[in-house]
Design a protein around this nucleic acid. Structure first.
Ligand SMILES: NC(=O)c1ccc[n+]([C@@H]2O[C@H](COP(=O)([O-])OP(=O)(O)OC[C@H]3O[C@@H](n4cnc5c(N)ncnc54)[C@H](O)[C@@H]3O)[C@@H](O)[C@H]2O)c1
Ligand SMILES: NC(=O)c1ccc[n+]([C@@H]2O[C@H](COP(=O)([O-])OP(=O)(O)OC[C@H]3O[C@@H](n4cnc5c(N)ncnc54)[C@H](O)[C@@H]3O)[C@@H](O)[C@H]2O)c1
Lengths: 203, 203
DNA sequence: AAATATTTGTTCTTTTTTTCACAAAAAGAA
DNA sequence: TTCTTTTTGTGAAAAAAAGAACAAATATTT
């Protein structure tokens, strides 16, 4: 199921997309591997290699058609089907994600939140918030396959297990632990403390 | 300076540290490359290679001393000197970072925040918040070298330039753009939308 | 229409990263 | 002590990623 493309190439594609949208806003219809690479922080060769890897074609001498590139990239990330997510842990990070407007633009919808703290159920968030034991029910209801974990370290694996038993197949994990998941489940880790801390190495 | 280590190896070290602290809490004093690797999601060989690369020694047959490992890792990331940061953009992400307690435990201190919106200046946050034009002054006052950018895409480069002119040398950037910086400045990128979106590739 | 200039697509090369393999060290047993 | 077992430390091998090079294609110019 999980194709053998590296995580880095996937992230580059999303970065290409960001730049392509910029180019489009500036009125361009075509782009060269060199210009796109420069904008996205990659070499022209890498841009072409990446596109070639996914069978994305340009015109020699004419460059790549921006509309076509954007469609191709959107296909890779299933942008045209409904992309639903649930969010567990409505704390600092969880609320930042709920309030972020940019997800809607990209057809990503956080359909529900979950938290142990009952004060989160009444408060007025843009999404409904339920206790964690309702995860299986809501997952079934929406047919959602993707979840975000934004609970404290101590609860990370517990929530992960609950998500797995509910049928979740992809997890974005903000808690600073390695999650134990079966092979057919994909986990992407974001450790904000570590991302900040790596900077101090260079000082 | 020692700039020839890859970003991935640095992140692995921080992950090792997280696991070592766990081991320590469970009462262990020694650890084997195999156990640490298993906990941290790396192979035993990689653990040993990583340590070896930084001149970190264990005892053959006896494994690695956890205290010594933690001290070595803390040295790499200058944990024992004051690690100061400023934060530009007190929005969703910015506030999540301000409210996070875990930074203090690791001797990371967000000393001040900056925002265009005057409603953010009131003393409602754990740190003082100033208008961006006071960045140079505050940077000088604290001698801070590290900054977090959490402003909208459109303001990312403007703020970056201001930080650079104030003498900032390391940036954690949450805005989804490639920053133009001189060679002696290090930028680490966190693109939350992309981190979430890569998941949909695998579905 | 032919010549020219430019850019893609892909193969070949180099570099980087990871894994393998095993000698050397050291703890524990005999 | 000597032998055995386990684990490190590190070169050698393999795999993965990035970079260079260039023929093939195609706009543009002459
Ligand atoms: N906020 C940051 O800047 C930051 C930085 C680095 C790492 N992190 C990590 O991100 C994660 C979230 O951080 P945060 O600052 O948002 O935490 P937080 O404490 O603000 O929020 C956690 C939320 O999870 C809820 N919760 C706790 N246990 C739960 C459970 N079993 N089921 C459902 N909900 C539960 C809590 O009620 C709370 O609302 C943590 O693991 C933290 O270590 C956060
Ligand atoms: N919140 C999320 O979950 C999320 C997800 C993906 C990406 N991002 C990115 O992270 C960045 C921050 O996101 P956010 O949700 O916190 O944004 P936000 O809009 O909530 O906050 C941005 C803050 O920056 C301030 N600001 C704007 N221009 C400024 C300037 N020139 N100088 C100083 N302050 C300025 C605003 O007043 C506001 O307080 C954005 O670039 C966004 O694209 C955020």
């Amino acid at each position: 199921m999980a194709q053998n493309y590296s995580h880095n190439v996937l992230k580059r594609f999303l970065h290409y997309r960001q730049c392509l949208i910029q180019f489009q806003r500036h009125g361009f219809r075509k782009v060269f591997s060199y210009s796109l690479g420069k904008e996205a922080g990659a070499s022209a060769e890498q841009v072409r290699k990446d596109f070639s890897l996914f069978g994305i074609k340009g015109s020699r001498r004419g460059g790549y058609d921006i509309d076509y590139l954007l469609n191709s990239i959107n296909d890779i990330f299933k942008q045209n089907s409904e992309r639903l997510v649930i969010l567990v842990g409505i704390g600092n990070i969880g609320q930042a994600l709920i309030n972020y407007e940019g997800f809607k633009e990209n057809n990503i919808h956080i359909v529900a939140g979950f938290d142990l703290d009952p004060s989160k159920y009444i408060k007025r968030f843009a999404i409904p918030v339920y206790p964690p034991d309702r995860i299986p029910e809501i997952v079934r209801q929406y047919g959602v396959k993707t979840a975000i974990i934004a609970v404290p370290e101590i609860s990370g694996q517990v929530i992960c297990d609950l998500l797995l038993s509910a049928g979740i197949k992809a997890i974005l994990n903000f808690s600073p632990i390695l999650l134990k998941v079966p092979d057919d489940v994909i986990v992407n880790y974001v450790n904000l403390r570590n991302e900040l801390e790596t900077l101090f190495f260079y000082l």
